[in-house]
């Protein structure tokens, strides 16, 4: 706000307040990762990662291929446990509770995940969205949940007349939004997205991005993307990983205008990676 201490009239009256620059530390954290080391067999792929996931914000993980960003994301819903000889030490908490002490299927219901390639089940559109509520025991009528989820995923208007068609009949972009709707149907507290737009055309990508920006008011989101412009466009905080280490973690505007680390700057200016 312009300072108007010396004048008799407030020169900025009526102007909406400008959002101050957010710092990660000022936020209430939904998830906390501390001192995380991750190994595939003998090979260590993540080194001493500590980072907080702010509630109701979108956090992006960026970095060159093989930097460990997807691995980091997959630890957040313990999906790494499906891989043989994957092993980690360190701690991850959700709302202060260690995620490793909870029943894994119960825990995963609280964390939605959307994958790189759209992976609808070989079922109808309706049954895809209803899958989670069905296995988890829905409290509301299924058709309500399906409609609400498809609306939140901005897909309802496109599919409302063909809910019983196979999900494979949708376009790639629609399939990915269907997968987002499917994840939203279990009302996850955190939504993880692993390069959700890498298989989509630019228009579909833009639609998914707009969707994410809308969703973050009601859901904490973590997105892995190899497209750093995408991270710039949609995220509030950005973490830059390189060779399994967290190089920089800052509010997105800061990271993309005045990065603190020269390696971050080299990466976001396209000078390597």
């Amino acid at each position: 706000m312009p300072s108007t201490a010396n004048s008799s009239v407030s020169l900025a009256a009526g102007l909406p307040a400008s959002p101050g620059r957010e710092l990660a530390g000022e936020h209430s954290m939904r998830m906390n990762i501390s001192k995380l080391n991750f190994y595939y067999g003998e090979k260590q792929v993540l080194f001493d990662i500590s980072l907080g996931v702010a509630a109701a914000r979108l956090t992006a993980l960026i970095g060159p291929s093989g930097c460990g960003k997807s691995t980091l994301l997959r630890t957040l819903n313990r999906m790494h446990e499906t891989v043989r000889n994957a092993r980690l030490d360190g701690e991850i908490t959700l709302d202060g509770q260690s995620i490793f002490l909870q029943d894994v299927t119960q825990f995963r219901r609280r964390i939605g995940m959307v994958f790189q390639k759209p992976n609808p089940f070989p079922k109808s559109i309706f049954d895809n969205v209803a899958y989670g509520p069905r296995i988890n025991g829905a409290s509301r009528p299924l058709s309500d949940v399906v409609e609400a989820s498809l609306r939140r995923a901005a897909l309802w208007d496109e599919v409302k007349d063909q809910l019983h068609k196979s999900a494979y009949e949708l376009s790639g972009g629609q399939q990915q939004r269907l997968c987002i709707a499917r994840a939203l149907a279990v009302e996850p507290e955190v939504l993880l997205l692993d390069e959700p737009c890498s298989a989509l055309d630019p228009i579909s990508t833009a639609k998914v991005e707009e969707l994410l920006v809308q969703l973050k008011s009601s859901c904490t989101i973590v997105i892995v993307t190899h497209n750093m412009q995408q991270a710039a466009r949609v995220s509030d905080f950005t973490a830059f990983l390189l060779n399994g280490s967290l190089i920089e973690f800052s509010p997105t505007p800061q990271l993309f205008t005045t990065p603190a680390d020269s390696r971050t700057e080299a990466y976001i200016t396209g000078r390597f990676g």
Binding site: M79, T82, Q106, R108, I111, M113, N119, Y131
Partner: peptide
């Protein structure tokens, strides 16, 4: 597909 189902709990 498997992971999609597992991720839904």
């Amino acid at each position: 597909l498997r992971e999609g189902a597992l991720a839904l709990g």
